[in-house]
């Protein structure tokens, strides 16, 4: 793998770390503090009971402490300070990581079995192509808008389900094509000749060859989800209001609130999506070179 891809992977893993530790990075307790003669690391997490009795105000002047730049997840209001907005950005990374992973998990869970079955002719093939046409003709925007109109209470979960289902159909189409391609090869014939059941042949011999393109496509899908979430939350159709989101931060910048935070959100979206693209390209190159196909470079 080339350097840019390695860098991009590094950035993405940091993003996930930020998302996992968002509560620590944007919390009211310090990251590191010297108090009562000993060093406390992340006291809000490691010793919440003891920390609860300490008055942070008294601490500041007497002992060295490393504070997180911002407070716990605040609400996005017009009077929000810069620190609060940065904290929203940090928590936004958690929403985007959960959303993306959720969509990917659902899409793969739906798409791979469906595509494999369609490719082997178990599920009526026409059904899949109709479903593909259906989702192709229905922009995610419209589905999400319809959902927001009819089922406001579904919120985040509904958003993930809709995107997951729509992307799942695309993954299914891809898997179907790959399964058809692999099914023609000699080793699949051999496996069938040796008496492997269709299910076993698909699971043991066909699917391992399908994973490569699916992973590449999933990475592109992740980039698409990040962009779509940004666009939809910007329009106020994406994640519900109480979930911090980069897209909404951008949207508020349009009304003159928190331009700095919006820049941070923009940077976050830009870097995340670009890194996903770079990683996907590298994966694609790597896998197609291994398959002996034409390389992108």
């Amino acid at each position: 793998m080339r350097l840019p891809a390695k860098l991009a992977l590094l950035v993405l893993s940091h993003l996930v770390l930020v998302a996992v530790f968002a509560d620590l990075l944007a919390s009211e307790s310090p990251l590191l503090v010297r108090h009562a003669g000993s060093w406390w690391v992340l006291p809000g997490v490691t010793a919440p009971a003891a920390w609860g009795e300490v008055d942070p105000a008294a601490l500041d002047s007497t002992s060295p402490a490393l504070w997180a730049p911002v407070r716990a997840r605040p609400a996005l209001t017009s009077g929000a300070s810069g620190a609060e907005l940065v904290s929203l950005c940090i928590h936004g990374s958690r929403s985007i990581v959960i959303t993306t992973l959720g969509v990917l998990a659902l899409a793969l869970a739906l798409g791979v079995p469906l595509g494999a079955l369609a490719g082997r002719g178990v599920v009526w093939d026409g059904l899949l192509s109709r479903a593909v046409e259906l989702t192709g003709a229905l922009p995610s925007l419209v589905v999400v808008a319809a959902l927001a109109t009819g089922h406001a209470e579904l919120g985040w979960l509904g958003f993930v389900i809709v995107l997951g289902a729509l992307r799942g159909v695309e993954i299914a189409r891809l898997v179907r094509g790959e399964v058809l391609r692999v099914s023609g090869t000699e080793f699949v014939l051999a496996a069938r000749a040796l008496g492997g059941s269709p299910l076993r042949v698909v699971a043991r011999h066909v699917l391992p060859h399908v994973w490569g393109p699916v992973i590449v496509s999933a990475t592109f899908t992740a980039a698409g989800v990040v962009a779509l979430e940004a666009a939809l939350s910007y329009l106020g159709l994406g994640l519900p209001d109480d979930v911090p989101s980069w897209g909404r931060l951008l949207g508020h910048a349009g009304r003159g609130i928190g331009v700095g935070a919006a820049l941070a959100a923009l940077l976050a979206i830009l870097v995340t999506t670009a890194c996903l693209y770079v990683v996907a390209d590298a994966l694609d190159d790597h896998l197609s070179a291994r398959r002996g196909g034409a390389s992108r470079v």
Partner: peptide, 30 residues
């Protein structure tokens, strides 16, 4: 001009254009 400066430049521009949210662009343009 594959694998030379124009290629890297145009690829980088393409990735950035892909990744740049339209919402940010249009907010900046507003």
């Amino acid at each position: 001009r594959a694998q030379r400066v124009p290629d890297f430049a145009s690829s980088a521009v393409a990735v950035v254009l892909c990744a740049l949210p339209v919402s940010a662009l249009s907010t900046a343009a507003a």
